[in-house]
Structure formats: structure tokens, C-alpha cells
Design a protein around this nucleic acid. Structure first.
Length: 567
RNA sequence: GCGCUCGUAGCUCAAUGGACAGAGCAACAGCCUUCUAAGCUGAAGGUUGAAGGUUCGAAUCCUUCCGGGCGCGCCA
């Protein structure tokens, strides 16, 4: 609808310019307009119509010669002429000039009903994008396999999954990937931590600095002890540590996969850091950087000149002891991702990795990739509350609140909605009590109840419709609320596009909550199913089912279920 | 100190450069013999941290300042 109106405004602008120039050539030629400057938008205030355009204000300077004699506001004069010039039969009920020069459009009821027919025909696919041919890789969570997922990772999981769903719905080829840091120092630390706990099984044993202190290490060491034969532990520490590390990391990884699966999340790839070394990717990436003159040696270490590409300072790739840094494999990893043919990489990182953005961007540029192919999104931290009080874990337990703790208490859908109802760049306070509440405190129920309510009403109506067969006559929808709902549904594709373009699933979450509000209100004021008026009932139920189809699509894009009943 | 980021109702947060800045919670007043009250209605709540600038028009863009969060290792 917005596009239709924009087209009509555009042609009105052009023909008006031509007419004015022809009627008085002394004032100059028809203005050349930078048409990308004006917008057609939905006013916040419904009193200003369904849509409005700022065209008259934006272009009043271009049209100034033709309105030279006009006293007062030239934009208003232009707006009035523009309104007269609009040629769109049947589309508008009213066109009004308001404020500093807005042209406001009220779309005719019949046009909305016609739109509603299209929406119903498209069903849950309404708003689905045409294939773009664009390949997008979304990498998220990617927590090290050295400890359990915590509440913050849950936010990353919900976000990445939703963004991937949305981008796929918009027509892109999307893959979800988890980068497993199974190489490097932290794995060795895990091995040493496990060894320490095997030898010091008392829970309150003082863990030396540099080892993981969380009690999960103790649990894990206990499991390994039970599962492995005694001989396993008899070998020298030099062999035992890496062996423990590998087995421990595998177990932790399996555990994380379990949590994510329970959350309803499936990755396309679990990408191993180790494989980058084994496959020679790290060596090749470093070689390329060297060859292109982006490295230098200092104090026996190999540096990448990331500062040439906007980073604060240069970064070490190979330490003076010969070990590769974490960053070295990350360079190779991003190179690998792009070489796999992805047009866009989305990295979701916790805010504490903020410094990483500049150096990874520098790396892909130095390797010859355009920087536009990488989008790093930082999400702010999550604070867990219980009834308003911060949930704190003891230092000894690892100082993090496990994601599992959330999943044990809260349904995945409720958790997802809470995680997704806020912008990624604002910190979340995740209240377990609110997440468990079954009322308005908990937005997921509000939206899911919408779907359940409509399903139940439609079911109830079936008996009546059997006695009065035939298609619904949507033309019977005459209430303002009904037209508003149709117009609301029409805005769904745009809401999804905005959520996708801004990588902001919370926009879709708010769209759903607002739409649910509109419907619940409508439902409260109008009887939907009435035996004495089966035709009207049919039309209303048809509208309601369209609301359900689209809200249901929105819910599933956010990774949530579409219930038929609440119980 | 430097970099990134945020500052909006009592609280938690929305708001593609647009008109009178919106929701929810909390607090207040109401609605269940009627399709699920997990719902609805009403009233109340604001100098968008401050000051400049750009613009016809700024919560939004630019500059400075104030305040919070995060980061600043040959850790991962």
C-alpha cells in the first residue's frame, strides 16, 4: 500500500512540475527533484490518516519559483496542489493537508478489504521475500567448551536464531553456525583444572589462580573418574592433561548442545577451530597476510598491522614462544567463512568482546575481502532477577548463572520472548518470576493467547458455518476496528523487513504485542460468532484467522510456538 | 586516559529525521449468567542527562560537557 501511494505521489509531483512550467514558462523549467528524499509513512497519530507524505515540505524549495507570489507557507500551497494532482481512482477516501505541509491520505475501506483478500490468499506466506540469491552466515553463541552456557548465551541463542529465521523468510540463504574453540590455551587450562579436581575432590578446596574455579569442573572430573578405567589416570601428567582436556571439552560441548536443543535451536554447522589448524587454513591466512606486507616481526613475535585498517593497535598472530594466538585462528576462520561463498557474515558477540570488532574487520580487509561483508553485532549483558532481586552465584560456582537454570524454570518460548523483547544494545534484566507468570507481565502469553483464542473461536464457529456454507463475504466488515486490523496486517511485511534490515528481532516482537493488543480489544467489543448473523460471523472469523496466520508466522520467526489452546 | 556503547514516565523499555514522544509494570477507578478474565475499559504519569549546531522539522544526525556499562594482555 505504501509503495502504491509512493508511486502515485511521485507521478503527481512530476506532472505538477510539468504543468506549472507550461503554464508560466517565465518562471523556469519543471524542477528536477531528488525523489529519494521524500517518504510516505504511517503517522503515529491515527487522526492523520493511514499514510502521509512529507513531499511538499521536502520539495518546497525546488518549487519555490512557481509559488513566488504566494504569501505565507509555500509548502502548504504546494501540498494543496499536490493533493489535487493525485490520480488514484478508488484508493482514497480522503486527502487532507495538515500541519506544516503534510499531505495525509485516508485509504478507502474498499481498498483495505481488497488488501485483506490478498493477505488471506497469501496466508502465512504473506510478506515472504523473493529469493535474493544472497548467502548469509549467522554465527552466534560460540561459547568456549570449557564451561556451561550462561544466561547471556541464552540471549545470543534467541537472537541469532530469530535473525536467521527472519533473513531466511526475506529470501536469503541462511546458515547458522557455532564456532567451537576446541584448540588453544583454554582447552589446556580445562585439562589442568580437571586434573586438580581429581586430586582435590573436596568442594571447598582452594583452586589456584589460572585454573577454572567453577564447581562444574568438579562434577565433570567425577564423571570422568566413574566412566574411565583406573589405568587411564596412571599415565604421566604430560599425557593425562591433554587427554582429560579433550574428553572434558567433548562432554561440555555435548551438554551445551543439549541445552540449545532443549531451547529449540538447531545449528547447520558446528565449526571446529582445530580443523582450521589441521586443514592448514591458519598457516595459509598468515602466509597471505605476510605476502601482502601486512605483518612484521618484533620481539620474536609476528604482528598483524591491523592499525592500517582502523584498529587501535597492531595484534599478535604468533607469540614469541611459537604458539598462535586466539586471534590468529579467528583470522583464518573469517577467511574460511568468506571463501565458503557467503556474501554476508553476521557475528554476534557479547558486549565484553567489543574490542574484537575492529581487529576482525581489519583482518578480512587485509585478506582482500570488502569490509561490508562483515557485520558484528554486540549484545549487552543479561542480569537475572528473581522477584526483583539479582540472582548471584558464588565465586566458587563460577560467578555465572547457568542457562540451564533458566531452562529448568521457564519454558523456552517465554525465555525467547523475554530475550527478544529488547534491543540487543540495551542490557536486559531477565526476571524469572515474570517469565513464569501467566498474565500480562509475560508478553509471550499475551501473543500466544491471541493465537489460541482465535483458534478456539474458529472451532466453535464451525457448527454454524456447516449450516450456512459458502465463502465469507469480507465486504460485510464495516467496523473501524476491522479495517484497522486489516491495515495492521498489511504492515507485517514491512515490520519483518525492518527487523531484518536492522538485525533487530525486537521490532517484530513489539509488532506482535501491539497487534495482539488490537485484536484483544476488538474481541472485547464485538461479538465474533453470532448464530443470528452467520454471514457476518463468517467474515469476522475469516479476518481473525488471517490475524492468527500472520501473528503465528511472526511467533515462529522468533522461534516460538503457535498454540491452539492455552492450558 | 583512549576506544565502543547507552542515557526517554516512579520502574523496565519502544519510537525508518516528522505532526500531540508511545507500551507494559507499579499505583488508582471499573468490567466475568454472554465466543477462554492468560482478557478488556477509564483516568494519571515527560523540559527525551545538559548546552550548542545542521534542518522547513531533532529523542534520532554533528560538536562539547555530565553520568552509567563494556573493552584496552605475546589471555581466550
Amino acid at each position: 500500500m505504501k509503495e502504491k501511494i509512493k508511486k502515485a505521489v511521485t507521478s503527481a509531483l512530476l506532472s505538477l512540475g510539468k504543468k506549472l512550467a507550461e503554464s508560466d514558462p517565465s518562471r523556469g523549467p519543471a524542477p528536477v527533484l531528488r525523489l529519494e528524499r521524500f517518504v510516505v509513512e504511517k503517522p503515529a497519530n491515527p487522526a492523520f490518516g493511514h499514510f502521509s507524505t512529507n513531499a511538499a515540505m521536502v520539495f518546497s524549495k525546488d518549487f519555490a519559483p512557481f509559488y513566488a507570489g504566494v504569501g505565507g507557507n509555500k509548502a502548504l500551497a504546494l501540498a494543496a496542489d499536490l493533493a489535487k494532482e493525485m490520480d488514484a481512482p478508488g484508493l482514497f477516501e480522503a486527502i487532507e493537508i495538515k500541519g506544516p505541509g503534510f499531505v495525509n491520505f485516508r485509504v478507502a475501506r474498499e481498498a483495505w478489504i481488497e488488501t485483506l483478500r490478498e493477505i488471506i490468499a497469501a496466508g502465512a506466506d504473506y510478506g515472504k521475500g523473493e529469493p535474493t540469491g544472497k548467502r548469509i552466515l549467522v554465527e552466534f553463541v560460540s561459547s568456549n567448551p570449557t564451561g556451561p552456557l550462561h544466561v547471556g548465551h541464552g540471549r545470543g541463542a534467541a537472537w541469532g536464531d530469530a535473525v536467521a529465521n527472519i533473513l531466511a523468510f526475506l529470501g536469503n540463504e541462511v546458515e547458522r553456525e557455532y564456532y567451537v574453540n576446541d584448540a588453544g590455551n583454554q582447552i589446556n587450562t580445562l585439562g589442568r583444572s580437571l586434573l586438580f579436581r581429581l586430586r582435590n575432590p573436596a568442594p571447598d578446596a582452594e583452586v589456584p589462580d589460572g585454573l577454572y574455579k567453577g564447581l562444574y569442573v568438579l562434577d565433570l572430573s567425577g564423571e570422568l573418574k566413574n566412566e574411565l578405567p583406573p589405568e587411564f589416570f596412571e599415565r604421566p601428567d604430560g599425557e593425562l592433561v591433554p587427554a582429560l582436556a579433550e574428553l572434558g571439552a567433548e562432554k561440555i560441548l555435548a551438554d551445551m548442545k543439549g541445552d540449545l536443543e532443549h531451547f529449540g535451536l538447531r545449528y547447520d554447522n558446528w565449526f571446529s577451530e582445530k580443523s582450521l589448524y589441521a586443514g592448514g587454513d591458519v598457516a595459509r591466512a598468515i602466509e597471505t597476510l605476510k605476502k601482502n606486507g601486512h605483518t612484521y616481526e618484533r620481539d620474536g613475535a609476528l604482528f598483524f598491522k591491523s592499525s592500517d585498517f582502523g584498529d587501535d593497535k597492531d595484534r599478535v598472530l604468533v607469540k614469541s614462544n611459537g604458539d598462535h594466538t586466539y586471534f590468529a585462528s579467528d583470522v583464518a576462520y573469517h577467511d574460511n567463512k568468506l571463501k565458503r561463498g557467503h556474501d554476508l557474515l553476521i557475528d554476534l558477540l557479547g558486549a565484553d568482546h567489543g574490542g574484537y570488532q575492529a581487529r576482525v574487520s581489519a583482518a578480512i580487509q587485509a585478506l582482500g575481502h570488502p569490509k561490508e561483508k562483515l557485520k558484528v553485532v554486540l549484545y549487552q549483558l543479561v542480569k537475572l532477577l528473581r522477584g526483583g532481586e539479582t540472582v548471584k552465584m558464588s565465586t566458587r560456582a563460577g560467578e555465572f548463572v547457568p542457562f540451564k537454570m533458566v531452562l529448568d524454570e521457564v519454558s523456552p518460548d517465554a525465555a525467547r520472548f523475554l530475550y527478544l523483547s529488547q534491543s540487543h544494545d540495551s542490557p536486559i534484566e531477565f526476571d524469572l518470576e515474570a517469565a513464569k507468570a501467566k498474565n500480562r507481565d509475560n508478553p509471550v502469553y499475551y501473543v500466544q493467547y491471541l493465537c489460541a483464542r482465535i483458534f478456539q473461536v474458529a472451532k466453535k464457529a464451525e457448527a454454524i458455518f456447516e449450516k450456512h456454507p459458502g465463502p465469507a463475504n469480507l465486504d460485510l466488515l464495516r467496523e473501524k476496528d476491522e479495517i484497522d486490523l486489516a491495515a495492521r496486517l498489511e504492515s507485517f511485511p514491512e515490520a519483518v523487513r525492518n527487523a531484518g534490515a536492522g538485525l533487530s528481532p525486537h521490532l517484530l516482537a513489539s509488532w506482535l504485542a501491539e497487534t495482539a493488543g488490537m485484536f484483544h480489544r476488538y474481541y472485547g467489543e464485538h461479538r465474533m460468532v453470532d448464530e443470528n448473523d452467520p454471514e457476518l460471523s463468517k467474515a469476522r472469523v475469516r479476518l481473525a484467522l488471517a490475524v492468527r496466520a500472520i501473528a503465528g508466522r511472526g511467533l515462529s520467526l522468533l522461534g516460538m510456538g503457535v498454540p491452539e489452546r492455552m492450558d
